[in-house]
């Protein structure tokens, strides 16, 4: 059964409604609480096991030894001198990252953390290679 201009009343109703879009750059965007954004790194938790490097589907992570290593702990009397705890840096290539957060799940020490940071566009590609120290 044909009824012309069936949508007309709906269109008129919408004239008095608020816009459905949000004016994003001028007001904050609405993000859900568990949104998968940029991956952050906590250096003191990392043990350099390279699990995240192996599991990353887009080869976006590198875990390297830090330039400045902490000094070896002072030897305790009667015990053999323990090795120094090594420090690691994380190089996160944001232009490779697909934001699946598999590394966050795999990390045994929870050194990688998912943040809600999504404003990552940059005109300089080098800036997308973040070196977390």
């Amino acid at each position: 059964m044909k009824k012309p201009a069936r949508v007309f009343s709906e269109v008129v109703k919408h004239l008095f409604k608020k816009p459905a879009t949000c004016a994003y750059p001028f007001e904050p965007a609405r993000i859900m609480p568990h949104f998968r954004g940029r991956i952050a790194f906590e250096q003191d938790k990392c043990i350099g096991c390279q699990m995240c490097v192996r599991v990353c589907p887009s080869k976006a992570i590198e875990i390297v030894l830090s330039a400045d290593q902490p000094p070896a702990p002072a030897p305790v009397e009667g015990q053999p001198a323990g090795p120094a705890k090594k420090k690691f840096d994380c190089i996160m290539k944001l232009d490779h990252c697909v934001f699946c957060a598999q590394c966050v799940e795999t990390c045994p020490k929870k050194a990688l953390i998912m943040t809600q940071d999504f404003e990552l566009a940059h005109v300089n590609r080098k800036e997308l290679r973040r070196h977390y120290k």
Binding site: M32, P33, H34, F35, R36, V98, C100, Q102
Partner: peptide, 11 residues
Amino acid sequence: ELISGNRVHYS
């Protein structure tokens, strides 16, 4: 997005 954390590639 609420359930999985992303709009398109839910993973």
